[in-house]
Write a protein that binds this DNA or RNA. Sequence first.
DNA 1: ATAAAAATTTAGGCTTGTCTAAATTTTTAT
DNA 2: ATAAAAATTTAGACAAGCCTAAATTTTTAT
Lengths: 220, 220
Amino acid sequence: MASLAEENYLKLIYHLSGSGAEEVSTNALAEQTQTRAASVTDMLRKLADKNLVHYKKYQGVRLTPEGQEVALQVIRRHRLWEVFMVEKLGFRWDEVHPIAEELEHIASAELINRLDAFLDFPVSDPHGDPIPTAAGTMPSPEYEKLCEVTAGQRVTMMGVSEHAASFLQFLSKAGLIPGSIVSVLEINDFDRSMILKINESAPSFVSYEVARNILIKFSV
Amino acid sequence: MASLAEENYLKLIYHLSGSGAEEVSTNALAEQTQTRAASVTDMLRKLADKNLVHYKKYQGVRLTPEGQEVALQVIRRHRLWEVFMVEKLGFRWDEVHPIAEELEHIASAELINRLDAFLDFPVSDPHGDPIPTAAGTMPSPEYEKLCEVTAGQRVTMMGVSEHAASFLQFLSKAGLIPGSIVSVLEINDFDRSMILKINESAPSFVSYEVARNILIKFSV
DNA sequence: ATAAAAATTTAGGCTTGTCTAAATTTTTAT
DNA sequence: ATAAAAATTTAGACAAGCCTAAATTTTTAT
Ligand SMILES: [Mn+2]
Ligand SMILES: [Mn+2]
Ligand SMILES: [Mn+2]
Ligand SMILES: [Mn+2]
C-alpha cells in the first residue's frame, strides 16, 4: 500500500514527533531525509491525500492513526531484522542499522510474524529499543539516563538514545552494552563526567555526553 | 548500482536465455515482466548503456559478463532467502517464492555471506535449484526428468522445473519432495503416465505432464 | 518474390519522487 | 508595529519506468 518513500517519511515523522506527541516541521523532515524542503512539502500533500498524516500548510504535520500504524509496522520490521542479524548472523550492533533500513520495507506479515517467533518474541532490539507488537502497539519501558544516576548507585544498562556507529563501537570497547551492570563510582562536578565500574572490570571514565545517551534502570 | 527494476530484467534475461546461451526476445521479456514491449525496449537501451547487456535493435538481447554477474548475485540471494524461510522459519516450499522476489534485492554482500554460513552453505534451494557461489559461478548438477525413467528403476527426487504453487502443493501431497526415493512401477504407453512407489508408501499415479517437470538422479 | 502478419521500435505522455528558483507566510528582532 | 529573517510553499523541470498509438523492420505464407 504505502511506497518505500512513504514508509520512510511516516517512520521519520513518528520518530521526530516524539512518538506522535508533537507536530513535525517541514525543515526537520528535509534535514533527516537528505532532501529539500520543497520535496517534503510535495510528499506531505500526498500523505495527507492518503489520510496517513494531518497536514495544514505552514503548520507542520502529525500522523493519523492509520499513518501511525504503518510507522509502527515499519519500526517493528526494522527492529526484528536487527535482532536477527545480531543474534543469528553474528553482526555487531553497530553494523546492522543500514541493512535494516532496507529490510524494513519487505512487507509480508507472515514473514515478520514467523521471524518474530524464530527469534523467541524479543521485546527489544540490540540497542535496547522496544519492538512494536504485531497488533501495533509500542511498549514504552521507562528508563533513566545514566547521567542522572548519583554516585554509589548500581544500575543495569538497558539501551542507547544515540545510534551512531562510532558511539556504539565506543560503548562496546568499554563493555557498556545492554545487560551490563554498572556502578557509578564517582562523578566529577565540574564537567559531570563519571567513573564507572562495569561488570567487575577495571574502572572506566565516561563523559557527560556519553552518559546522557545511555539508558539504564535501577537494579532491584 | 543496478536498480530493482534492472536487477529483475537481468535475472529474467538469464533465465529466459537458458543460463546465457541464447538471445532473448523483447516480447518474451514483456510477457514475463507483465509489461509492454515498448517498455522492455526502453529498459534494454538503458541496460546496454550500462554495459550490462549486448543489444542490437530487432536482434534480441544477451547478458554481458557484468550483467551475468549481477543476475547470478540476485539469483543467489533469492535462493538463499528461500532456504532460510523453509529451513528456519518453517514456511512450505510453495509459499516462499513471492517473498524471495522482494528479499533478493537487499544488496549487502556481508548479509548474504553471513546468511549463507548460518544456513550451512546450502548448494540448492527448496526446489532443488542450485545456488550460485559468492564468487559468481552457477553449479550445474546434471539431472534427468522423471518422464525419461524406465519402468523398474529407482531414482532420487532432486528438484522441479516448474515452480507454480499449485504444482508444488500437489507434489507435497504425493510425498514427492527433494530427497524422496521413487521407484517407477509401471508406465502407461498410451499417455505416458506413471505409477510410482514413493518412500515405501502406497503406489501413486502421476501424469506425463507432472513427470516431465520432476528432476531426478539415478540412485547409486 | 511479395504481401500479410508478427515483432519491435519510436513518439509522445503519465506518475513518483526528486530538484532549483521564486513567491508567500510565519517568526523574530528591533 | 514593522522590517528583516527564516520557514514553507508554489512553479516549473527532470530521471526512472511505465503506458498507448503509430511507424518500422523482420518473418512467414502464398
Ligand atoms: Mn536501527
Ligand atoms: Mn527505510
Ligand atoms: Mn523462487
Ligand atoms: Mn525481483
